[in-house]
């Protein structure tokens, strides 16, 4: 799979935003010109029995205008501040071709981040009702094991640039209107699909 990570391509999200990722980003964009991003197939362990398949945010690059409201509102909802570096999603833009790639946690059925966490179930948790993987920042020690274990490039779980604990998309768990990026996407390019729809 095109955006699956190889060892030599490991980069942190901060580096990705700040500098290192251009060539990679554009190659990833060109592979995402049509359809929704594929869901990871992994060789790691499945989630424990009885936990439902999580919903997932998918991106339609044919509708996306590349505005970046998704990232701004994500940061603003979770952090009360604006800025790309605080967003749990990442939009990589090629404005000369109007091609945009959207990176967000794929809520894997076999979540390597969860299994890599030394404080599994305390720091990196799975919501038993919804199947959503999320970080409990009170317990997270910021070791970055989840970032290293993530099957995607760029990684979808990262170390927060200020708080130095892990942060990732939790589908705005507990927010009545669902993920804020989906609600504020005026182009309707982002959609939340349920676990059942994922199959």
């Amino acid at each position: 799979m095109a955006d699956k990570k190889s060892e030599e391509m490991k980069i942190t999200r901060r580096e990705f935003i700040a500098g290192a990722g251009t060539v990679l980003a554009f190659s990833a964009v060109s592979n995402l010109t049509a359809g929704v991003p594929a869901i990871a197939q992994t060789r790691t362990q499945p989630v424990p029995e009885g936990i439902p398949v999580s919903a997932l945010i998918v991106h339609d690059p044919n509708l996306c205008a590349g505005c970046g409201v998704c990232g701004l509102m994500c940061a603003f909802y979770h952090e009360k501040e604006y800025g790309h570096s605080l967003a749990r999603n990442e939009l990589v833009r090629d404005p000369f071709n109007a091609v945009y790639a959207f990176y967000v946690c794929q809520q894997c059925k076999t979540p390597s981040c969860y299994f890599a966490c030394p404080k599994k179930d305390a720091a990196l948790r799975i919501d038993k009702q919804t199947g959503v993987k999320y970080v409990n920042i009170a317990e997270c020690i910021g070791c970055g094991a989840c970032t290293s274990a993530c099957q995607f490039t760029p990684p979808r779980v990262n170390v927060h640039p200020v708080k130095k604990v892990s942060f990732k998309c939790d589908l705005c768990r507990g927010r009545e209107d669902g993920p804020i990026c989906v609600e504020y996407c005026t182009m309707q390019a982002l959609k939340k699909i349920s676990g059942d729809e994922r199959g």
């Binding site: 700040a18 501040e81 604006y82 800025g83 570096s85 605080l86 504020y184 005026t186 182009m187 309707q188």
Partner: peptide, 29 residues
């Protein structure tokens, strides 16, 4: 820039943004 912008009254700003978004027929698709 990888820095951030702090807002004095985030809850008020969010409320205004929400009102704008609720006018969906003006904004969407």
């Amino acid at each position: 820039g990888t820095g951030t912008l702090k807002v004095a009254r985030p809850d008020v700003l969010m409320k205004i943004q929400k009102e704008r978004m609720d006018a969906k027929e003006w904004l969407k698709g």
